[in-house]
Amino acid sequence: MLNIAVVLGSTRPGRRGKAVADWVFEQAANRTDATFELVDVADFDLPLLDEPLPPSLGHYRHEHTKAWAKAIGSFDGYIIVTAEYNHSVPGALKNALDFLYGEWNNKAVGFVSYGSTGGTRAVEHLRLIAAELQMADVRAQVTLPWATEFENYTTFTPSDRAVKGLGTVFDQVIAWAGALRPLRQ
């Protein structure tokens, strides 16, 4: 059985991403073709990248990096839940991605994003980052604009369109994670 992480990438106090990630995780519970786990970047309390050697070498000195590597390395694929900050990726998520290398390689990744334009610009940047980390990003994505998916711009209320789109993201991430399995072995 494939193991997929739902990665919550915002650590901001009062973040709306928690409600979005919880929704993704709850929808995943309906699946029988993979297991899912919610991974919150905030739980790892990662400082700004502080490893003296490049992550591509895989020689981690700090316990926080080792814990992060152990958590991330155990998955076959990821669904990253991200906000859009200033037309890009939240700094905490970028930092968390940069801490590791081999743990991300040859795994599938899909995106659920939110923000004023649904987080599309953050995902554009994440696709470039994923390519450098040797991840296979899937085409489908879920974009959640403040104006249509958040009541009064605060309370997350996913539309039928979002639910349907998330099903497609699950389908593609699971298919690609399975297809990439021989490369991970």
Rank of each mutant, 00 (worst) to 15 (best):
E149A: 09
G9N: 05
G178D: 08
E124L: 13
T154D: 12
N30P: 13
I174G: 06
A19Y: 00
V112L: 03
G91T: 07
T168H: 05
A140V: 07
P52E: 08
S56N: 08
Y153N: 15
V39I: 13
Y101D: 15
E103N: 02
W104M: 03
D160S: 14
A136S: 11
V6P: 06
H125C: 10
V24W: 02
D43S: 15
N30C: 14
V142Q: 04
L49M: 07
E63H: 02
W68E: 01
A34Y: 00
L53M: 10
V7M: 13
E124H: 02
G165W: 03
G58K: 02
T154C: 06
G58Q: 06
D137C: 03
Y60S: 06
F111A: 07
L100G: 00
G110K: 03
L97E: 10
T157L: 13
N106G: 12
A96E: 00
I79C: 06
V89C: 06
K94E: 14
H87Q: 10
V173N: 02
V7D: 06
R61C: 11
A29E: 12
E149R: 05
D171A: 08
Q172Y: 12
V123S: 02
K107H: 08
D171F: 01
N95M: 14
W146E: 13
A83V: 09
E63T: 15
D33M: 10
V109S: 07
R139S: 15
A5P: 01
T117Q: 11
T117I: 14
G110T: 10
R12W: 05
L180H: 04
A130Y: 00
G17F: 00
D50K: 02
G119L: 12
S74N: 09
S116P: 06
L126I: 07
K66A: 09
L166A: 08
G167I: 07
E26D: 10
M135F: 02
N30E: 14
P55C: 09
V7S: 05
T32V: 13
T168I: 15
Y60R: 00
Q134V: 14
H125F: 10
G9P: 01
G102Q: 13
E124T: 13
L46V: 09
A122G: 04
R121L: 15
A5L: 05
E103L: 07
A92V: 15
V39T: 03
S113W: 00
V123A: 05
E63G: 07
I72S: 11
S88N: 12
Q185L: 14
P47R: 02
A175C: 05
G73K: 04
P52G: 10
L128C: 11
S74K: 03
H59L: 15
S159T: 14
A29W: 01
V142P: 01
N152P: 09
D40M: 10
V20I: 03
I72H: 04
V169H: 01
